[in-house]
Design a protein around this nucleic acid. Structure first.
Length: 469
RNA sequence: GGCGGGUUAGCCAAGUGGUAAGGCAGAGGUCUGCAAAACCUCUAUGCUCCGGUUCAAAUCCGGAACCCGCCUCCA
C-alpha cells in the first residue's frame, strides 16, 4: 500500500507519487522572525516534521526547504522602532527558532533560505512577470500581479473572487492597484520603511511577501516539486498567490501535492498573537513542562483536525511518554537465552503493519499511537508471564526504535551528570538498609531522592532509578 | 454573504456500512516490607438532535442546532 495524503487542491485523498521515484522534494512555509514562534506555529512545524520523518521511514530521500521570512511589515516595523538594522533585529529570533526546533526534536531541513538573501531571485521573477504582462507597475513604483491574467486563480482555495466579501482588511492605501485582489510583488520604498530597502532594477524598495516562497522554492527544488505545506491560513491568499506567480512565470505546474495543517485552538479560539491567547514553547518549559510532552500532544491529534490545547492534555502526554519509556527500559532488562519465540515475532510484524497502515493513511498518528500502545500492553503481558526472552526483547527494542525515528518521543535526551554517582551510592545504602529490614531508613533515602526528582523502583533484579519526566 | 472543518465516555482522541481503537484520569484487584512499575476487571446499550436508506449507520442521504477557521501579507 502506498502513502496517501489529502490534497487541498483536489480535495481528496490521493496516492503520493513523487516526480522522481524514491525522492521527495518538499517546501514548508517557515516562520516570520519578528518574535518567538508560539506553539500554534509549532503545531504546523511538527506536522511537517512528522511528514518528513515518515517519508524517510518509508525509504524516501527527502529534500526539504523551509523559508525564514526576515523581511515583511512586522520585521520592518520592529527594527525601525528599535532603530537598529533589520538583520540585527531578526537575529535573536532566528537563533531562538532553531533552539526551539532542537528542543522539540524537529529534524533539520536541508535548506533554510532567508528572504533577504534571495532578493535577486525575486527580482528576476518579477521582471519576467512584467515582461509577460502578468504584472504591472503602479504610480508609486510598486509592482502588482494582475490576477485577471491568471484564469486558474482560486483553484487551490476553491474561492470565487467575484463572490468574496470585500473585507475591512483591504487597505485604503492600496488605491494604486487596478483590482483589489491584485497583490504586491514588489513594494516601492516608503519613508516608513526607514533604512530597509534594496536598490534593484525594479527600483528602490523591497519584495512583497508571497514572492519569496516562489523564488526560494523553485531555486532549491525546481520549477515543479512534490509537496508544499503550511497552515490552513496560508491557503488563501498566500499559496494561491504563489501558484499564480510561479506558474505564470514558468508555464509549468508549481506543486503536485498541497498539504495544510489545521490550527491549534485554545479556549475555543484559534491561538494567535493577534488574539493574545498564545503560549511560546518557553512559556511552557518555564512551567516545568517537558518539551517532549508538547511534541507528543501536538502530534497525537490528526494534523487536519483542529487541536484543542489544554494543560490537562500536556499532563496526559507527559504520563503517556513515561509509560512508553518505562516499557522501553523494561525491555532492555530482559535476560534469558534461547531462540526468539515465533509468536513474538508475529506480534511485532502485526504491530508494524498496523502502524504503517495508519501513517500511510494521511499520517494518522493517533491511530499509529493506538497500535503502539496495544503492542506495549501485549508485550508487557507476555513479559509478566515470562514468555519473552532476550532475543525477543532485542527485536522489540529495534521495532520501538524504528517507530521512534518517526515519533521521536521515546528515546530520552539523557544526560548523565556528576550527580549520578551520588544517587547510585544512596541507592546502595538503601539496598543495604532493606537487606537488614531497616524500612524507616530505606524510606528516608527514597524520600530524599524523590525530592531531587529521582524515582526509585524496586524490582526482583534490584533497584532501578529514573529522573522524573 | 462565499468556502471549508467540527460535535464520539470525566478530559484528550482514532474510527467512511458489520455492531464503539488508544491515551490520561478514576474505582477495585494481583504483586510488593511499603511504594513504584506491570498486569487484570470496571467506567459511552451508545457516537449533538430529528427524519430517511439498509438485514446492518458514529459511518450514507435530507434537515436542524451549536462551535471553529479562511475570505488579501496570520502556522
Amino acid at each position: 500500500m502506498s502513502v496517501r495524503f489529502f490534497d487541498t487542491r483536489r480535495r481528496a485523498l490521493v496516492d503520493f507519487v513523487p516526480m522522481t521515484p524514491g525522492e521527495v522534494r518538499m517546501y514548508t512555509c517557515g516562520p516570520t522572525i519578528y518574535g518567538l514562534a508560539h506553539i500554534g506555529n509549532f503545531r504546523t512545524f511538527l506536522f511537517e516534521d512528522l511528514l518528513r520523518r515518515y517519508l524517510k521511514y518509508r525509504g524516501y530521500k527527502v529534500t526539504q526547504v523551509m523559508n525564514i521570512t526576515d523581511i515583511d511589515d512586522k520585521t520592518i516595523r520592529g527594527c525601525n522602532a528599535k532603530g537598529i538594522p533589520l538583520d540585527e533585529y531578526t537575529a535573536p529570533f532566528r537563533t531562538a527558532f532553531f533552539e526551539d526546533l532542537d528542543v522539540l526534536r524537529i529534524e533539520r531541513a536541508e535548506h533554510y533560505p532567508s528572504a533577504t538573501h534571495h532578493i535577486a531571485e525575486m527580482v528576476e521573477i518579477t521582471q519576467k512577470l512584467l515582461g509577460s504582462g502578468n504584472a504591472y507597475k503602479a504610480e508609486d513604483g510598486s509592482i502588482y500581479f494582475r490576477i485577471a491574467t491568471f484564469p486558474r486563480y482560486g483553484a487551490l482555495s476553491h474561492m470565487n473572487l467575484a463572490e468574496l466579501k470585500v473585507g475591512a482588511r483591504v487597505n485604503s492605501d492600496e488605491y494604486e492597484k487596478d483590482a483589489v485582489s491584485d497583490f504586491a510583488l514588489w513594494k516601492a520604498w516608503d519613508p516608513q520603511d526607514g533604512t530597509v530597502f534594496w536598490d534593484t532594477p525594479l527600483g528602490r524598495g523591497r519584495p512583497g511577501w508571497h514572492i519569496e516562497c516562489s523564488a526560494m522554492s523553485m531555486k532549491y527544488l525546481g520549477q515543479t516539486f512534490d509537496i508544499h505545506t503550511g497552515g490552513v491560513d496560508n491557503i488563501f491568499p498566500h499559496h494561491e498567490n504563489e501558484i499564480a506567480q510561479s506558474e505564470a512565470s514558468t508555464g509549468v505546474p508549481f506543486v503536485n501535492h498541497w498539504l495544510h495543517a489545521e490550527h491549534l485552538i485554545v479556549e475555543g479560539r484559534r491561538m494567535a498573537k493577534s488574539l493574545g491567547n498564545f503560549y511560546t514553547l518557553r512559556d511552557l518549559t518555564a512551567r516545568g513542562i517537558p518539551a517532549v510532552a508538547v511534541r507528543y500532544l501536538l502530534l497525537s491529534t490528526h494534523y487536519r483536525q483542529q487541536l484543542n490545547f489544554t494543560f490537562e492534555g500536556l499532563e496526559a502526554a507527559r504520563n503517556a511518554i513515561g509509560r512508553l519509556r518505562d516499557f522501553r527500559q523494561r525491555l532492555t532488562e530482559i535476560t534469558g537465552n534461547g531462540d526468539g519465540h515465533s509468536e513474538f515475532a508475529e506480534l511485532i510484524t502485526q504491530s508494524r503493519t498496523g502502524f504503517e497502515a495508519s501513517l500511510d493513511d494521511d499520517l494518522n498518528a493517533s491511530g499509529g499511537l493506538g497500535v503502539l500502545f496495544e503492542f506495549l500492553r501485549e508485550a508487557n503481558r507476555r513479559m509478566d508471564a515470562g514468555l519473552v526472552n532476550r532475543n525477543d526483547a532485542i527485536e522489540a527494542l529495534k521495532f520501538l526504535d524504528s517507530l521512534d525515528t518517526v515519533l521521536s518521543v521515546i528515546s530520552d535526551d539523557k544526560s548523565s551528570d556528576s550527580s549520578d554517582a551520588q544517587i547510585e551510592q544512596l541507592i546502595r545504602d538503601r539496598e543495604h538498609a532493606r537487606a537488614t529490614k531497616q524500612w524507616a531508613r530505606s524510606d528516608e533515602i527514597r524520600a530524599e531522592l524523590a525530592a531531587k526528582g529521582v524515582i526509585l523502583e524496586d524490582t526482583p533484579g534490584g533497584t532501578r532509578w529514573k529522573r522524573k519526566l
